[in-house]
Computed example of a mutant assay.
Amino acid sequence: MNTANLKLQLENITKTFGDGDSSIKVLKNVTLNVKAGEFVALVGPSGSGKSTFLSVAGALLAPSSGRIVIGGQDLSQFSEKQMNEIRLDKIGFVFQSANLIPYLTVKDQLLLIAELSGKKGKQANQKADEMLSRLGLSHRAHAYPENLSGGERQRVAIARAWMNDPEILLADEPTASLDSERGRAVVEMLSQEVKERNKAAIMVTHDTRMLDLCDRVVYMEDGVLTEQPVFQH
């Protein structure tokens, strides 16, 4: 296989929680490769292992076995410090819950991410303004999370995930708190960003109306990933 164009490689990933007779194998020899410019949807019933898979793919959870390669870097020998750097510099996360910091304004949520990676000043400000504008949030830049709707909070979380121009975006039900029109607009923006900037993205979703915006759809059930897409355009 030519791996030069692969942003994310997950090879024979298993994840087991617990020990002995009480252990539960949540992921079972899962393999998935995502290329630059590819937007992959991950679908399947609740409890099938999708969120665990996303956490392993994003180096938030260590696999019980298997190999993760991000941008050509094998994470198996990385220290915790190196893993933190990978998560900050290479991966953008969007979770079902926006997880915003309550005492920071919308714009400051984004600027914090820039500051953590050593980016400050005019460039960080311009990037934050650009992301807020693209997601229709410019008028909410100085608002606090408690004054935002659920949909607005989720859009802030998406803007924050793109703030550091990550190589990989991992989104867990990013449209769950959005109405259908806003949800589609957000997924269209994600897809466009992936294509224009040659990124890679995996989106867990239950919303089948969004699948036509994805390049490939893979299906997970009982911790097993179906190699053939269930939908392709």
Rank of each mutant, 00 (worst) to 15 (best):
F231I: 12
R87T: 06
D89I: 05
E196F: 03
V56L: 03
L100Y: 00
L110G: 01
L211F: 10
D172F: 09
S97D: 14
G72V: 12
Q123L: 12
I202E: 06
T105D: 09
L111K: 02
T52F: 10
V69F: 01
Q232D: 08
R197T: 14
H139V: 11
L178E: 08
S149H: 00
V43I: 15
K81P: 02
K195H: 13
M163W: 01
A41F: 07
A200W: 00
S149E: 02
T208V: 13
S138C: 06
A4E: 15
L170H: 09
L111N: 01
T31G: 10
M220G: 03
A171H: 00
A62E: 13
A59G: 07
M163R: 00
E196C: 06
K50T: 07
S180M: 12
A41P: 04
K35D: 15
A157S: 15
A171K: 01
G223E: 05
H233F: 13
A128Y: 00
D165K: 10
H206V: 11
N125G: 15
M131S: 07
M131Y: 11
L27G: 06
K119P: 05
V94G: 08
K90V: 03
E196H: 09
T205K: 09
E152V: 04
I91A: 03
R153M: 15
H233G: 14
R153T: 05
L135H: 10
E173T: 00
R197V: 08
L116I: 11
E181N: 14
A114F: 00
I13L: 10
E221S: 13
L42V: 12
Q192C: 10
V224A: 13
L32M: 10
G66T: 08
E173H: 03
V156M: 01
R216H: 09
F78Q: 14
L170G: 07
T175P: 02
M203L: 14
E227F: 04
I168K: 04
Q77A: 14
R184A: 08
C214I: 07
R184Q: 15
L75Y: 04
F93L: 13
R184L: 15
E188N: 11
L42Q: 05
G118Y: 06
E11N: 11
L135V: 09
L132G: 05
R87Y: 02
E152I: 09
R153G: 15
L137F: 04
H142V: 03
K15N: 04
D172C: 12
N164T: 09
A141S: 13
Q126W: 00
G47V: 01
G72Q: 07
R67K: 15
V217L: 11
G121L: 06
V230S: 14
H142W: 03
L61M: 08
A176G: 11
P145H: 07
D212K: 12
G37P: 01
A124E: 01
S55D: 12
P145S: 11
D21L: 14
E152C: 10
N99D: 11
G66V: 04
L211Y: 08
L178Q: 06
S46D: 05
M83E: 11
L32E: 06
I91L: 10
V69S: 04
L116D: 02
V69M: 04
K35F: 05
M131E: 12
W162G: 01
K35C: 08
L100G: 05
L135M: 14
D108H: 06
V106C: 04
P63V: 02
Q96H: 08
G18Y: 00
S22L: 12
G49K: 11
S48Q: 09
L8M: 11
R209P: 05
M210C: 10
